[in-house]
Amino acid sequence: MSRTSFRRVVVVLAATVGVAACGADAVSPLPVQPPGPTRTTPTPSTISTTSAIPTPTGSPSRPPPTSARPAAPPPTPTRTRGTPRTTPPPTDATPACQGAVRYDLPLAETEIELLKSLCFATGAVLRIQGIGPGLVTVDRPELVSQQYEAGVVDIRFVRPGTVAVTIPKEGREHTITVVVR
């Protein structure tokens, strides 16, 4: 065998081995996935002319897609006769009540006279910017944790309740009522 024909055989053999290695059986499944069914090429005797729609193969962890409508939600429980409820049940967050957020209140840019009340979840922080030390007071110190640093007062609401936060500005004291859920 000549050197040129030997190189051609090696190249053809390498290409054949590379194509054979790309088959479905050459890739092993991940340890968390069960091995899927192996694919075989259909022969003329196994091809059905009546089955034109392929059947989806589903994963054991996820059900196959369906074209049916989603199931209806369970019916709401009925109330027994008696006194009607006058207030809605408490919720985690309403449009008027914010969650455990940081609310920045820059005094130089805010019309504090227009801010009368706020509502937060426990853990929220009211950050008052642009004020001196010891000027901001609260009426219920057991419900908050208050810190001052570099012209910024952070008031963290640690327990539920209602806290009146008093902020002096331009010779007047402004009180913001904060409801903490």
Rank of each mutant, 00 (worst) to 15 (best):
R102C: 07
A96P: 05
A72V: 11
L118E: 07
L114K: 10
T94D: 03
A108E: 07
P63A: 03
T110G: 01
P90V: 05
G151N: 13
L135M: 12
A121V: 10
A124S: 15
T66R: 04
D104C: 01
Q129H: 08
Q98G: 09
S61M: 15
A100L: 07
A72Y: 06
P74K: 02
R79L: 08
P73Y: 07
R140S: 03
P73E: 12
R102V: 10
L118A: 07
A71V: 11
E111M: 13
E113M: 01
G130F: 02
T87P: 04
P106Q: 13
E142P: 00
P77A: 15
R140I: 00
E149R: 10
C97R: 01
Y103Q: 12
V138C: 11
A68N: 11
S145T: 12
L107S: 04
E111H: 14
Q147C: 00
D154W: 06
R62A: 07
P88M: 05
V125R: 02
I112K: 09
T83Q: 11
R62S: 12
L107W: 09
A108Q: 02
G99P: 07
L105H: 01
T76D: 15
P73S: 13
D104T: 08
R62L: 09
L143K: 06
V153T: 11
L143M: 14
E109T: 05
R85Q: 14
P56G: 05
A124Y: 05
A121W: 03
T76H: 13
G134V: 09
P89E: 14
P56Q: 05
A124R: 05
L135K: 10
K116R: 05
S145C: 09
P63N: 03
E111G: 13
R140D: 01
T83C: 09
V153L: 09
E109W: 11
P65Q: 00
E109F: 08
P88I: 06
T78I: 15
T87W: 01
A121I: 06
P90Q: 02
E142H: 05
D104K: 05
A108G: 02
T57S: 06
P56V: 06
S117F: 09
G151V: 12
L115F: 10
G151W: 15
R69A: 15
Y148I: 14
C119I: 09
K116Y: 07
R62Q: 08
Q147V: 00
P73D: 14
F120D: 04
G132I: 00
S59G: 04
G123M: 10
T83I: 13
L118N: 02
E149C: 06
R62K: 10
R127T: 07
R81L: 10
T66M: 03
T94E: 01
E109V: 10
V153C: 06
P64N: 10
T76P: 13
E109A: 14
P60M: 03
F120M: 02
P73Q: 12
D154M: 14
L143H: 06
P89L: 14
E142K: 03
G99K: 05
P90N: 04
T66V: 11
V101F: 05
R140C: 04
R69W: 08
G58V: 14
P70V: 06
R79E: 09
L115W: 00
P56S: 12
P60W: 08
A71R: 13
G130Q: 02
F120V: 11
P106C: 11
G99C: 02
Y103N: 06
P74L: 06
F120L: 13
E111Q: 15
T110W: 03
A93C: 13
Q98A: 06
R85C: 11
P75Y: 12
D139Q: 14
T83K: 11
G82I: 06
P74M: 07
